[in-house]
């Protein structure tokens, strides 16, 4: 089982619903966020291209944060999701420095926190992650890459896609449809 997410940059309008849904679902402290919207403008006027993305932890297959964690608090969980065990985390910040996507933050309670793909609170109950379930343009797909019939497998077969900074060697599990 390999959980993955695909986000359609052609459909995303950058409404930030996913950000708010995540903050509510996961009790993210005020002023922090586990996912966020990026707007990329490329070119010179009038030839401009714009891409809007909802970004979060990429749950990398070769995660630098898991590699550099001195206590094993950052680890791979079911389906390849990357999680942090709070009571093992010493808050040294190595994983925050190691993430090329800057997807981790230091929780005010001391431990390091990030997107969990809503693994325990939703996915294990058969639901989609909070961000996916609220998206008003239905631009996000979640599922198991090993299941050829999952939403994410099907959309990745049909559409062109990219991952963020593949040259960093992290093998991300969040795909962007282009």
């Amino acid at each position: 089982m390999r959980y993955a997410m695909a986000i359609d940059t052609k459909k995303c309008v950058g409404c930030s619903d996913c950000v708010v849904a995540c903050q509510t679902e996961n009790n993210v402290p005020i002023g922090y966020c586990r996912d966020w919207i990026v707007e990329v403008t490329d070119g010179t006027y009038p030839q401009l291209e714009i891409e809007i993305r909802s970004e979060r932890c990429n749950h990398c297959e070769n995660a630098p944060c898991v590699r550099c964690c001195p206590t094993g608090a950052s680890h791979y969980e079911d389906g390849g999701t990357v999680l942090v065990t709070h009571h093992k985390c010493i808050g040294c910040g190595a994983c925050i420095a190691s993430c090329p996507y800057d997807a981790r933050y230091s929780h005010p309670d001391g431990y390091v926190d990030k997107c969990t793909f809503c693994l325990d609170n939703r996915v294990k109950k058969g639901e989609d992650p909070a961000c996916v379930s609220v998206c008003p343009t239905k631009c996000m797909y979640f599922g198991d890459l090993d299941d050829p019939n999952s939403d994410v497998s099907r959309v990745l077969k049909m559409r062109k896609w990219k991952t963020l900074i593949p040259e960093a060697g992290t093998k991300p599990h969040v795909y962007y449809l282009i």
Partner: peptide, 14 residues
Amino acid sequence: KEEIITSGRMNPYI
């Protein structure tokens, strides 16, 4: 190329 985080991600230390 210009990249803007529009959701206002301002996570402290990052």
